[in-house]
């Protein structure tokens, strides 16, 4: 008798919560597939891997992964994850959230965690809109794109996320679209294996609220646009990675560098100044 094979994503999922809430053609589930394979490749034991999310559609990832997972408040996944990671240095903590959550309400936390080089892997599914609340403008909505709160087209300049992450000190910065699944698995694996603040932007469709409002077709049409308009430029300057409405998308691994982490800097400084009277933090007592 042959055993039926299991979908490789399933060992990572809380199967009692599937099917999920995401819309047809949403890219978040695709990113989760890649995440599952990256965890496998990075060979991280599940009890040493924690996922923290904020609020929103991508924020629901924490609720679907069968790991110790935390669905926190809007924009605050990173400071929660900072506490978890500093207090449990033996674990790998992944922040998985959306563009609105992480770069509007949570922007301050992102820049400081990157600056401190807290040992976190931060994955941002950037669908260019607030999906859960109905398609409002985010800091990444391209100029001229329509949103429910930009009914005449967005007139605010956007964040270039890889550029922001690099400027703030991230040690690994990559961007892919959900079309680039194999590349995404590779970059996620690298990010998970690296110490320090690693950042991956995943450009993904929100067919229900972004693509439809902007008459851009469905999810599959959007992935075809990604395929046609993406330019793979590993090592490109993040300054070139800005996005316009339906523009070319520069993708690749942009930044790989070494910087001591918050915890390493802390220990080094205290050893130097306090010598033998320094008692390193060794987890909760």
């Amino acid at each position: 008798m042959t055993t039926k094979p299991v979908n490789p994503v399933e060992p990572l999922l809380r199967m009692d919560r599937i099917p999920h809430i995401w819309c047809p053609g949403c890219g978040i589930g695709t990113s989760v597939n890649c995440f599952a394979r990256a965890i496998e490749k990075a060979d991280i034991p599940h009890d040493k891997l924690h996922v923290v999310s904020g609020i929103g559609c991508t924020g629901r990832v924490a609720g679907y992964v069968n790991l110790d997972s935390f669905h926190t408040t809007h924009g605050r996944a990173i400071p929660f994850a900072t506490g978890l990671a500093l207090a449990r240095p033996e674990a790998k903590v992944v922040v998985y959230s959306g563009d609105g959550d992480m770069f509007a309400i949570g922007g301050n936390h992102f820049i400081h965690a990157a600056r401190r080089n807290v040992d976190l892997t931060v994955i941002c599914v950037n669908n260019l809109t607030y999906g859960m609340t109905g398609g409002q403008v985010t800091p990444t909505t391209p100029l001229s794109a329509k949103a429910s709160t930009m009914p005449y087209g967005n007139f605010e300049d956007t964040f270039n996320l890889p550029n922001l992450a690099e400027a703030c000190g991230a040690v690994f910065v990559a961007r892919w679209t959900v079309f680039h699944v194999r590349q995404l698995v590779r970059s996620m694996t690298k990010a998970l294996q690296r110490k320090g603040f690693t950042f991956i932007e995943i450009i993904a469709p929100c067919p229900t609220l972004y693509q439809r409002r902007n008459k851009l077709g469905d999810g599959a049409a959007t992935l075809k646009y990604y395929k046609e308009k993406s330019i793979i430029k590993n090592g490109a300057s993040t300054a070139e990675a800005g996005l316009g409405f339906q523009s070319e998308i520069v993708v690749g691994e942009f930044v790989e560098r070494e910087r001591p982490t918050f915890t390493e800097n802390y220990a080094a400084r205290m050893k130097e100044v306090l010598g033998a009277s320094f008692v390193p933090y060794e987890g909760p007592k």
Binding site: R76, P79, F80, G83, L84, N108, H109, P284
Partner: peptide, 17 residues
């Protein structure tokens, strides 16, 4: 970076034990 962060950072640490 602020009190919003502080007040949730501690909760991450609580869940670490």
């Amino acid at each position: 970076e602020d009190e919003i962060a502080s007040s949730i950072c501690i909760q991450g640490a609580v869940w670490a034990g």
